Simulated scan of single mutants.
Amino acid sequence: MKVMVTGGDGYIGSHCVLALLDSGYDVLTFDNHSTGHIQTSENISGISTEGRFLGTFSGDLLNVDDINRALKENDMDAVIHFAAFSQVAESMKRPDIYYRNNVCGTMNLLDAMKDHGVDKIVFSSTAATYGEPEYTPIDEDHPQRPINPYGRTKLTVEGMMDDYDLAYGIRSVRLRYFNVAGADSGCRVGEWHDPETHLIPNILKSTFGDGKEFELFGDDYDTRDGTCIRDYVNVEDLADAHILALEYLVNGGGTDFFNLGTNEGSSVKEVFAECEKVTGKKIPLKIKGRRPGDPAVLVADNRKAKEILHWNPRRTLSDSIRTAYMWEKKMRGN
Rank of each mutant, 00 (worst) to 15 (best):
A183W: 01
L21D: 04
S48D: 14
K282A: 15
L21F: 06
G226N: 13
A324H: 02
S125R: 10
N63Q: 12
D60G: 01
V297K: 02
L204R: 00
Y98P: 02
L71F: 08
S320Q: 03
G36W: 03
K277F: 07
V79I: 14
R314H: 10
F53R: 03
P292H: 12
A324I: 05
T129D: 07
D9C: 15
S34K: 15
S86C: 00
S172C: 11
L309V: 02
V103P: 10
T255Q: 09
A112T: 02
K93S: 08
V17G: 06
R230M: 13
E73P: 10
K154Q: 09
K329Y: 04
V118A: 04
Y150D: 09
K154L: 12
N148E: 15
K205M: 04
M161S: 10
I67M: 11
T316N: 03
S58I: 13
M161P: 14
M76P: 04
G289E: 15
K306A: 13
N74L: 05
Y135M: 14
K304Y: 02
T156H: 11
N234V: 02
R52T: 07
L204K: 00
T49S: 13
R332C: 06
Q39D: 15
E247F: 00
G265S: 06
C16M: 12
T126Y: 02
A128S: 14
E213H: 00
V180H: 03
R303C: 10
G7H: 04
K281R: 14
G24P: 07
D210E: 15
C228H: 13
R303L: 13
K120F: 00
L155W: 03
G13Y: 02
T40W: 06
R303W: 06
R332A: 09
Q144T: 15
N108H: 06
I121T: 07
V299N: 02
F208N: 07
L28E: 10
S23M: 01
R224E: 12
E276V: 00
K330P: 01
K212N: 07
I147C: 11
R176D: 13
L71Q: 07
R332W: 06
G159M: 15
L61H: 07
N202G: 02
A84V: 01
K120V: 02
L285I: 05
A70C: 12
V299A: 07
T223Y: 09
N263D: 15
D22E: 15
R315V: 03
N302K: 10
